[in-house]
């Protein structure tokens, strides 16, 4: 690459990573958050704690375990290799796996508190009117949870954009596959190519601000939670 030009590859890659991660997390997070709110299982507290772990663990802990787990000798990487022919480390799929773990609480917790605030009333009402469980969820719970979903989506997306330590440890810095914006910025700063670092950092700063601005203003317009 010509020095001076900004490589947009990492930007595009990061957006893809964050987008896919959020989609996966919304899919997995919805039933998980719902279960956490409504279950009486004795495992609930334990699962809740596990979900919150990425909030408190240094990314290096996650990165270290993932390096072992995703490699050809690890049980995740090993099984994936047996199925697909390649392990997960140094691959985009590996980063998706890592980001899903890393951003899990940022999606599950907003959904959980959203479902909690709804209580049992809406779903009971829907049931008494003859709606099936799925129907009740789609036509009653989802519309009432728009705020929760918006928050979960934005936080999950933004947190994945900002991912650094884990990617540094399991990514291998491959352009087009694992070289995300944060790594690119780090690289540029290390070799003192500040002009490129400035452009990417400034862009990320502006983007993050605009996204949050959008969320907060949209949040005001959305209906207040059911009570």
């Amino acid at each position: 690459m010509i020095s001076g030009a900004v490589d947009l590859g990492p930007v595009w890659l990061t957006l893809q990573l964050a987008g896919i991660t959020v989609l996966i997390l919304l899919t997995l997070g919805t039933p998980l958050a719902w279960w956490l709110v409504h279950t009486r299982s004795k495992f609930r507290v334990g699962i809740e704690a596990v979900v919150a772990l990425p909030l408190v663990l240094p990314p290096t802990v996650l990165g270290f375990y993932l390096l072992i787990l995703l490699g050809p000798n690890g049980w995740v990487g090993g099984s994936v290799e047996a199925l697909t022919g390649s392990p997960l480390s140094f691959s985009f799929a590996g980063l998706v796996f890592a980001s899903t773990l890393y951003s899990l609480p940022f999606v599950v917790q907003p959904l959980q508190s959203n479902f909690e605030s709804l209580g049992n009333a809406p779903i009971e009402t829907a049931a008494s009117l003859g709606a099936s469980r799925w129907d009740a969820f789609y036509s009653v719970i989802l519309p009432l949870s728009r705020r929760g979903y918006l928050t979960a989506t934005v936080l999950g997306f933004a947190h994945t954009l900002g991912e650094f330590g884990v990617v540094l440890m399991v990514g291998g810095n491959i352009p087009g596959k694992t070289k995300v914006i944060s790594i690119e910025i780090y690289d540029r700063v290390e070799v003192m190519e500040y002009s490129q670092a400035h452009i990417l950092s400034g862009g990320l700063l502006l983007f993050s601000f605009l996204v949050l601005l959008m969320v907060y203003s949209l949040n005001k317009k959305l209906p207040v939670n059911f009570s």
């Binding site: 390096l67 000798n73 392990p87 140094f90 291998g172 810095n173």
Partner: peptide, 18 residues
């Protein structure tokens, strides 16, 4: 795959990831 420094490169090989 590029290690951030030679230690990380060593890790990549030692763990079998590379």
């Amino acid at each position: 795959v590029r290690g951030e420094n030679i230690s990380q490169t060593f890790q990549f090989v030692m763990t079998g990831n590379a």
